[in-house]
Design a protein around this nucleic acid. Structure first.
Length: 424
RNA sequence: GGAUGGGUGGCCGAGUGGUUUAAGGCAGCGGUCUUGAAAACCGCCGGGGGUUCACGCCCCCCGUGAGUUCGAAUCUCACCCCAUCCGCCA
């Protein structure tokens, strides 16, 4: 949510920022309504002041036993005028708000121009795709051959975009999640949190899923929403709070199920478990002072990269272009992992700095140590990393010619020493 | 699902129609004292908005929304949330 004052200060600059997102100018219309709103509000407040004064006079008059009927009559006539002005101001305020809450965040100057993912920039690459010495298989070929990754039963139970994983592969996925969680809590300073997977409207609004992206979400019959990422509950932990400057930064992480309707991606990635209605993800969320968010963004992205490095997975860090950067983000790094079976780099993590955009929506603030100012915090979120996709990446990168899969050594403590997954 | 009790500033908590301009405490900030710290004492100290070059002045906010009234934290209605007990339940 944008501060109308920044638009007042530089409407042309704001329009230029929105143009980078491919949006038409809105500042002139907004400022016109803003001026009208303030006019109505000022007039209303003058009448409220008069009413307050009259009420005081009536009170004093009655105590003395004086006739106050003239004062009361004036106050009564004020009421009608006030109601009209109040309605006018509230309507304009609602219109301004309705526009503002659907406008995306202002992009960081670092973000390259571009309409889609083809304009994303490679920031760096770590590890190189290895020549396995044989024709690599895709994860679902490996999984089905092992008899441990099943799509027919999932379709029977729930439909398309679900997967049943069994046995050693199920254990491997569980190990991946535990490994990531333990890494971030013990080495990267994040506190583990268990969060609700069902949340209310206000929570979805706070992180920016609502009101614009309801069609991407699942809704329950009692009006709640299934979280598409733990970013939603983790970030909203700060909603409505004023915290002390000293308590920042706050870093939290959760391993959670995520639910996405995948509306609009019909036909994409239909084979395998790359794009599911339900998947697990370890999420990282940081709340910082404004001046710290940029450094925190790098730090968080490094934390996610560390996961891939320890798993021996080649990856590259992408800086998303204007057209590919999400609604709430000013700057996003995607981590793309190499999938030998697919022969492609695929997203496995996305780390975003939202600055004060979500904080304003959810009214999350901090008080400076000198007690003088209260300001919105900055919020950041990143996958650290997607567990289901990590399972795919481990399977495809560590597959052997015989169709077995070597378990990365980093996972052994969580796999009970299981070092290889093979059919038996 | 049923019953009862609640929701007041960063936190706790008083406040049942008009000196509430929301008491008091805690925390925080500044100061006195001290080698330093603590304690004690003194002062400052909620949020949002309008207006003003500024000082300041004004308006709104006591869970949310309607209503009654000259006037509402206080009265009425609806809704939301929390706690406890009962029922059901992993």
């Amino acid at each position: 949510m944008h501060d109308i004052r920044t638009i007042r200060a530089d409407g042309a600059g704001f329009d230029a920022a929105m143009a980078r997102r491919g949006l038409l100018p809105v500042s002139a219309d907004l400022l016109e309504r803003d001026a009208a709103r303030r006019l109505a509000q000022t007039a209303l407040q003058e009448k409220q002041a008069r009413r307050n004064a009259l009420a005081k006079l009536v009170g004093e008059g009655r105590r003395k036993g004086a006739d106050t009927s003239a004062l009361e009559a004036e106050s009564t006539t004020l009421r009608d005028d006030m109601a009209a002005l109040e309605q006018n101001a509230a309507a304009l305020d609602g219109e301004i708000r309705a526009t503002l809450e659907r406008l995306p965040n202002i992009l960081d100057p670092d973000v390259p121009d571009g309409r889609d993912e083809t304009a994303n920039a490679v920031v760096k690459q770590t590890g190189t795709p290895r020549d396995l010495g044989f024709e690599p298989k895709q994860h679902f070929e490996l999984g089905e051959a092992l008899g441990l990754m099943l799509f027919e039963p999932a379709a029977k139970l729930a439909g398309a975009r679900f997967t049943v994983v069994r046995g050693a592969l199920a254990r491997l996925e569980r190990a991946l999640g535990q490994f990531m969680l333990d890494l971030h809590t013990t080495e990267h300073g994040y506190q583990e949190v268990q969060v609700p997977l069902l949340v209310n409207d206000a929570t979805m609004y706070g992180t920016g899923q609502l009101p614009k992206f309801a069609e991407d979400l699942f809704r329950t019959t009692d009006g709640r929403w299934l979280i598409p990422t733990a970013e939603v509950p983790l970030t909203n932990l700060a909603a409505g709070d004023i915290v002390t400057e000293k308590s920042l930064p706050q870093r939290v992480t959760a391993l959670s199920e995520c639910f996405r309707s995948e509306a609009g991606s019909a036909g994409r990635d239909t084979r395998g478990m790359l794009r599911q209605h339900q998947f697990r993800k370890v999420e990282l969320v940081s709340v910082t002072k404004p001046e710290d968010s940029e450094a925190e963004h790098e730090r968080m992205t490094r934390a996610a990269e560390r996961v891939l490095e320890l798993l021996g997975l080649p990856y590259r860090r992408m800086l998303l272009c204007a057209g590919d950067t999400g609604f709430s983000s000013v700057k996003t790094y995607d981590l793309e992992v190499w999938l030998p079976g697919q022969g492609m780099w695929r997203e496995i993590s996305s780390c975003s700095n939202c600055r004060d955009f979500q904080a304003r929506r959810m009214n999350a603030r901090y008080r400076s140590t000198d007690g003088k100012t209260v300001m919105p915090v900055h919020t950041l979120n990143g996958s650290g990393v997607a567990v289901g996709r990590a399972l795919i990446a481990v399977m495809e990168n560590h597959q052997q010619a015989d169709g077995s899969i070597l378990v990365p050594e980093a996972l052994w403590p969580w796999t009970g020493g299981m070092e290889r997954i093979a059919s038996r």
